[in-house]
Amino acid sequence: MLFAAALAFIFDPANLLGEKGILPRLMDHLLYTGLSLGVALLVGIPIGLIIGHTGKGKNFVIALTGSFRAIPTFGLLLFIILFTGLGLGPLVFVLAILAIPPIIAGAYSGLDAVNRETIDAARAIGMTEWQILGKVEIPLALPLILGGIRSATLQIIATATIAGYVGLTGLGRFLIEGLALHDYTLAFAGAILVAALALVADGILALIQRLVVPHGVSRGMARTTTRSGRRTAPPALTGTPITEG
């Protein structure tokens, strides 16, 4: 019943455009996501690559990802907004903060998983540190680097729903309005839209992730694992896509 009504709402052309339509809110949601992800990538990727390449700062990554996961982002966003006032800036700031740890962790663990012997050999034949990073480590680490970005993206999409609660729009606005007005059809429609966006984004990123697996590694018995248990890294650094919102 509710489900059918929600679907009817979604597919009613009257609800597509207009100020409170699905399309503009979807665009806003994507805008928040894109901006936050961009900021998070600018900060997170270099840090993750530096830590992964030098091997220094591993404990920092563990502490960072562990403690950030414990912070209730919903509370953090509200707290910050109480000081800064409503606006796009605070939202992007909080969402980026949320997304940085998984991005760092993905880049770090990707580089960490590259066989030490391969890197040693690259150095021995005369590659510079930059060449090792660019021609050996990053290509081999790309699937895990993208894994981190994928986690981060999903967390942002999910959490951006809260924007609807703090005076911005995005798909979350349907949820919040629906809850406030006890219009559960509207809330349900919003829930379906957010879930669909998350699933589509996840699917696209999963596809890209599969495509970037370097050839020689996907085929046959890839020897990308390192020896002497370097892979017993701490668990779950990259974190989970589920979050607030």
Binding site: S151, T232, P234, P235, T238, I242
Partner: peptide
């Protein structure tokens, strides 16, 4: 001192 598998590193990463 056993900290678990590296697969868990990317929980939610690669599905």
């Amino acid at each position: 001192g056993v900290r678990g598998s590296s697969r868990a590193l990317t929980v939610g990463g690669a599905a």
